[in-house]
Design a protein around this nucleic acid. Structure first.
Lengths: 99, 99
DNA sequence: AAGATATATCGGTTTTTCCCGATATACCAA
DNA sequence: TTGGTATATCGGGAAAAACCGATATATCTT
């Protein structure tokens, strides 16, 4: 867990927003073929809610994945991104007891 | 608590380091006239350990204070900065249960 | 008041981040 | 294979952050 890189990833309003959507994907995205709790939400749906371009959102998601905050699952032509609960748990502990 | 601004403040290796020093100032700074647990550490001592210029460190500390992570106490010609425990507690909870 | 010390603020250069359009890649369907 | 859709990557202009030196302010000492 690279805390500095994680905090950089969290230093953007849109990315914070995305993470909060992915916390409860069933409340924020329209019904889809795959289980929200299994795979999360896909790039296209996230992009629509952001209002930013596809390339920007794709890069944001790749960044969040690179630092370990979310995980990716490719299913056919879709990539689903899901919140990584353990990472947030660990980061919360780090903030409280190390930082 | 503005989480975005807090994460921006945490997106810098030196500032992370400073916060970890201020977590246990008695272990990281030489003996001083005032109680570490009361007031924390002063700018000059922090600057020496950083290796950055006085102006940069002063700005970093002002930034950390602005977002609420540390508090300042002016005593004579010295300003002491101290970790704000409640802020880290709240941020850790936010990371785990909201983000 | 004058000089010394500690900290804060200001102006500017360099580096990094934001966000885009264009294009590439991957997968699917006919 | 050809075309359509979803996502990823690349190159770059604009905005923000990093960090500095110079200077201002505040406080102490004499």
């Amino acid at each position: 867990m690279n805390e500095l890189e994680i905090f950089k990833a969290l230093s953007n309003q849109t990315r914070l927003q995305i993470l909060q959507w992915l916390r409860e994907p069933e409340k924020h995205f329209p019904p889809q073929g795959h289980s929200f709790t299994e795979v999360g939400g896909c790039v296209g749906q996230i992009q629509q809610k952001c209002g930013l371009t596809q390339s920007t959102v794709s890069e944001y998601l790749a960044l969040l994945q690179r630092v370990g905050l979310i995980t990716a699952t490719r299913m056919g032509q879709w990539t689903y991104y899901k919140r990584n609960d353990e990472a947030f748990e660990a980061l919360g502990k780090f903030v409280q007891s190390t930082l």
